[in-house]
Design a protein around this nucleic acid. Sequence first.
DNA 1: TTATAATGGTTGCATTTGCAACGAATATAT
DNA 2: ATATATTCGTTGCAAATGCAACCATTATAA
Lengths: 222, 222
Amino acid sequence: MYQEILTKCILFSDLSKEELSYALQFFSATEKFYEKGDFLNKVTAPLKSFGLVLSGTIQVYMDDIDGNQMIMANVGEGDTFGESLCFLQREAPVYICSLTDSAILWMNTDRIKNPDAHFTYRDIVLANRFTAMLANRTLAMNDRIQILSKLSIRDKLITFFSQYSNRYGSQEFEIPFDRNDMATYLGVNRSALSRELAHMREEGIIDFHKNQFQIKNIFANQ
Amino acid sequence: MYQEILTKCILFSDLSKEELSYALQFFSATEKFYEKGDFLNKVTAPLKSFGLVLSGTIQVYMDDIDGNQMIMANVGEGDTFGESLCFLQREAPVYICSLTDSAILWMNTDRIKNPDAHFTYRDIVLANRFTAMLANRTLAMNDRIQILSKLSIRDKLITFFSQYSNRYGSQEFEIPFDRNDMATYLGVNRSALSRELAHMREEGIIDFHKNQFQIKNIFANQ
DNA sequence: TTATAATGGTTGCATTTGCAACGAATATAT
DNA sequence: ATATATTCGTTGCAAATGCAACCATTATAA
């Protein structure tokens, strides 16, 4: 049922039915269901598993030094969370909360970290897929850091748009955020973001409608 | 000669002489020397290796959409670069340039990605060390994203300081940046950073001398 | 020593941006 | 259908911050 979602994850993409079944077993995959508002972990214990969101949305956050909550990630369908902490068996004061009703596929890396004598070629391939997942994660985080490092909203937007444009090979693309999440991703205030988007549209640099954006002549001004 | 530097890298820490030798061979390690200003890669070709800086400092950057150069990383002694791109064999328009005279240990992940029939237990262990390196990298990038996501310089500094304080388990610590690099890391203007640091000192929240910082009562105000 | 470069602090100013409040439009639930 | 919640844009205002220019101090080189 969740087949399509699984195949979106690099761990399980392009596997035969038999291989998929083996992979799920290799990562000790078990499905669990949560209701809106449920907590997925105990803060006191280190993460023994990482998760793949099969349906719904979950949020990872930690308490800030001044008591506020720092949102670390909103994780939607097909995306994973906690891989690094799980692999490193690192303790971290993170809370994982289900924003909607959700289904999570919990997995662990025990078979990678504690290989037995029968570690086979396909085990190595699966371990490499896990590594590739982390590598992809660092590249995605790097993209975000590029954006966040820009000093002005305008520059952040230009970087953000050009990344999407490159990724899709097109001047026109849809982004997976609403304005609120977009502002969070860019690290700016929502209304200031709206204002800057309006300015850029006035200047003829971009056009947009809801999540659909079009780059017109981003190089022209500035 | 570079023994101490190697052992700082998770790939090579706590290895016997014999194991170290095997690890170097496993990653096809070869040393190369560069002069200040030398380029370490050809932009047109994908990265076939990742690097460990044995001495000196190198910089990774790419051309921005508007022709400016985006600095992606300053890599100092003992730190690595290009692991993700190398492992994924991903092409990316990055420039790698030596800021000083430098010595680089080039390595690759061929033995991980193309395991032969004799893939042994210690090969698995080394592959896992590589994975752990990536996992650590994502955690470090996450810390930086936490900081960059804050909207004010004050909040960025508070987050930055509390990370260091947690890491060293002390209210007093030394940071590895000069003011310029610190401003870049925090994603703010250097003089604005100096100004905010001065304010925080006036308010008795922190004290500092050069790279030596002391948190006094960061919780008090705000 | 002297000269030069690098580093860090200070400040005036213009601009940007966060913030709050509000309203319109749309979506969702009852 | 009606009510309610969500999303998005707009705007006035105050505060934060980028920017540039300058100076002091320290480090480095000649």
